[in-house]
Amino acid sequence: MRKNIILAIFLTVISAIIYACQNASEIELSTYISNGKDIYRANCQNCHGENGEGLGELAPPLTDSVFLEKNKSKLACYIKNGTDQPMTINGKTYQGKMPAFPKLQTIDIAQVTVYITNAFGNKQGMYKYEQVAKDLQECK
């Protein structure tokens, strides 16, 4: 009997810890998303639009989930340093130039990337600050 009680307490504690952990990561994700939204509004929305719809052929939409997933490790470099590489997005080629945003810190880039990849019909979860720092070192 006593064994059972101890086991029950043990299991409750373990599940509480797991639940708390999950909650913490969910909270972190939603913090990233809400901060990222502000950064997006201030820096990206002019060209890419309120709903990530883009602007003609001047600025590509941010709704191509496959592209975002495939190029996730390059997104930080695009944002920090700008890019003039042609890109095929939603089957259309875009050749415009994207300006650099050198003022954005690594944490800002992480947050805005998480916002973009979880808004406009994308749902790709977390992209951590540490990973962004690593990706930024690989910029070409």
Binding site: N46, L55, A59, P99
Partner: peptide, 10 residues
């Protein structure tokens, strides 16, 4: 222009 022009023309 990367600031107000894209919004203006949109």
């Amino acid at each position: 222009c990367t600031t107000i022009c894209p919004t203006m023309h949109r």
